[in-house]
Amino acid sequence: MAQAFTKEMSRNIFYGGTAFFFLLFLALTFDTHLALPERDNRAALDPATERGQLIAQGKQLWEENDCIGCHTLLGEGAYFAPELGNVYTRYGNSKEAIMGFIKGRPKDGIPGRRSMPQFNLSDEELAAIAEFLQYVSEIDTANWPPNIQG
């Protein structure tokens, strides 16, 4: 068997298999991008609208405060703090509730417990983050998370 199966054959399986499955992956990627307009809530992102601009600002604030360093968003991120992909619905479809929570975090934390830092965001910035989180909650995620608790 050692003679029957040569190094050249295993090399060909590697190159052939890799090329085939990478091309298949590219095809699936292409198809995914055709399907996304129906699922990814891109209508909300229109930069010509005030909402679209607010969401873009909110996403950048989300990134520049490293929110993903504690939270998950659609299940990706750190597991130290709650999932935020559905926080808008969990908070009763209320952007004000989200803004109020972020704004009200104590500067020195809560003794002995996990607490979100006080980021000292302006009202406009808070509104942008809340708008971003509402946009995320309207993405079609195949019914994930399983329930409102995230």
């Binding site: 890799t18 499955f21 992956f25 699936l28 995914t32 996304l36 699922r39 659609l74």
Partner: peptide, 20 residues
């Protein structure tokens, strides 16, 4: 590795808005 792992990327595409 690559025959399984490239398309295996799909296990990250279940719940992030990508097709089912």
């Amino acid at each position: 590795t690559l025959i399984t792992g490239i398309i295996g990327t799909g296990h990250h595409y279940y719940w992030i808005g990508t097709p089912e």
